[in-house]
Design a protein around this nucleic acid. Structure first.
Lengths: 348, 348
DNA sequence: GATTAGCACTCTAACATCTAGAGTGCTACT
DNA sequence: AGTAGCACTCTAGATGTTAGAGTGCTAATC
């Protein structure tokens, strides 16, 4: 008997529906699909399969006589088990290397350009989060007194990834210039190569072994690193491609366009998704209702962390309508996370 | 005879047309206007005046039987001679002080919040340019060697407005730590209070008076300030309110929305307008075709410079459809330019 | 039993037609 | 000069119609 594996066929058809819908944004009918398979199945057969898929909740009807559209769950299956991995084409890679010059001038520019590259390749909005300070390694710290009394001091912190962070300290206890100098010398020697997130613990452990005058000195050091906002608050997010996204037909409805743009003004919702994903390995995809935040539930988010010296220190990705070219987006995000990691390593 | 000054009447009617159209986005008819004037003029009279205004090029018809709409020129007359200055309401001021806390934490946040405040008050996109470095005064410079050989040095420049600018220098000539220290000491004493833009000239003048070993030293100092990108390239632009803007009916056409968003991705066109206006005094308004850049010709831009110690150092403003509440926008932009100036002075 | 052809049915998008109403410009009257 | 009246124009919205794409079901076929 010529009995084809029905499960196999279901998959092929779901695959075709997603691809076709992603491509054209039009509901997919049985006839068109049959053509796509070079008439190896009749429209009627396909209709039967479609009815099954609908039963399973993988596709829907907008209305009785329209074609089928994938549901969030449908996309999920597509991404999870149907989509074969692909790589970027040579053209895409060369486009990226044109936008993200290996020889970056400044840190901000690098972030901006990576987000732009993602946006350009995927036609969705590209997003890059700055490295979490706590996950980068300490390299150097210097104190610059801003007035004669040394009560206002500018701390300049340099990390292994070449990030430079300024922080204005208003010190209650007066420190003489000499003391400040001693402080930086001590810290630079003591903390070399430590992760910024581990510094406070390290110093506290050190404290337990010491006493006398050095004890007070260490206390001061710890208080500096304990200042609120000294290591935090650098959750900066770069994004690019909002204009390009407006060409998608899903934004013909202004209300959606507006709520989408609002995401980028409030930022927090997006940051939450990326921060959460930073822990896990590799590419993560959140489709529609899978998102915890309800403002994002109309959209899909693809994220990936990027690493320096095998340690995940930040995240990047893309966001757009659930109807997106997942294959392309995933490969772009993967590629650029590696690129960014390497770029930051060079800088270190 | 009861003959009213016709010029006066023209003005009143143009004024009413603009106000009404700005408010409702609907072409204004003679009947509605007559009502607005409590029937002190008949629709027919108003029609005659309207015909005159159209002759003068201040208003137009979208089509034969539609009401009138102001032209760019009409808005220009309205802004130039009809609009009486207004101030922000108490509510608006308190909204601003909620968004822009007088006690800002960081420079970036201040910029971001000012642009947000403009956006929220005006319902257009608020824009703030960072202070031009060259126009701020020198306060302090320090050099931090990044490796033992001192060939890579991080220069930290602090200005009078509290801006801190980092710049990684790759020095060809090796400078010993001692030399670097001498250099910063010398510069800090020599340049105190100078505008950054004047530094190179100042040092060069100084050079002519000196000779011997100090000559070479000065040469090195000059070369540092001559590095491309050391004082430039900080043309950063903050903006906020793109989401709010999408509620304007003029963006129902996605193509316009897209071209508008593109302005903020390319940035340069907007920067040009603001940079140009920074020289002139007070608020500047560019309406539609008045803009040199053709991508902006569908929109209106309101700009104002902001000052620290009576010197214009940066610019801020708003951008939106030509149909905007010019009175409100102008007062918001004025108010916030003063606020920002003061905030930066406090920081200095 | 799996697949397909055929058919009746449904729904939408696109087009054409019509109408009410708002607005105009002109002319003649006050 | 200002106004009322009137014929005319144009659009937005309502209504009606149709072609086409798509479905689901049943019966025939492999």
């Amino acid at each position: 008997m010529k009995h084809v594996d029905t499960e196999q066929r279901c998959k092929r058809i779901l695959y075709a529906i997603v691809e076709s819908y992603v491509d054209s944004a039009m509901p997919v009918g049985s006839r068109a699909l049959s053509q796509r398979f070079r008439w190896s199945m009749s429209p009627a057969t396909i209709r039967n399969v479609m009815a099954d898929l609908e039963e399973m909740g993988l596709i829907t009807h907008p209305h009785t006589s329209a074609g089928r559209v994938p549901t969030d769950k449908g996309y999920r299956v597509y991404v999870g088990s149907l989509l074969e991995p692909r790589h970027l084409t040579k053209e895409e890679e060369s486009l990226i290397s044109k936008v993200v010059s290996r020889r970056y001038e400044d840190f901000e520019g690098l972030m901006q350009n990576v987000s732009r590259a993602i946006g350009m390749i995927t036609n969705e909005v590209g997003i890059v989060l700055t490295p979490r300070l706590k996950r980068t390694v300490f390299k150097q710290i210097e104190f610059i007194p801003m007035d004669s009394s040394s009560s206002r001091v500018l701390a300049v912190l340099v990390t292994g990834s070449g990030i430079v962070r300024n922080s204005l300290l208003e010190l209650e206890e007066d420190l003489t210039k000499a003391e400040l100098f001693r402080m930086s010398e001590f810290l630079n020697q003591e903390l070399e190569g430590l992760f910024l997130g581990d510094i406070k613990n390290h110093l506290t452990r050190r404290l337990l072994q010491e006493r006398d005058s050095f004890y007070a000195f260490l206390k001061k050091a710890i208080s500096i690193f304990s200042r609120p906002g000294f290591l935090r608050a650098e959750d900066k997010m770069y994004f690019d491609g909002t204009a390009g996204l407006m060409s998608h037909p899903e934004f013909d409805d202004m209300k959606r366009a507006r709520s989408f743009l609002k995401l980028f003004e409030e930022k927090q919702d997006i940051l939450d998704v990326f921060n959460e994903d930073m822990e896990a390995e590799g590419v993560k995809v959140h489709i529609g209702k899978e998102n915890a935040c309800k403002h994002i539930q109309d959209f899909a988010v693809v994220t990936c962390n990027y690493k320096v010296k095998d340690r995940a220190i930040g995240a990047l990705g893309a966001i757009g309508p659930t109807r997106m070219e997942y294959g392309k987006v995933i490969s772009a995000v993967t590629y650029l996370s590696e690129l960014l990691g390497k770029a930051l390593e060079d800088l270190g």
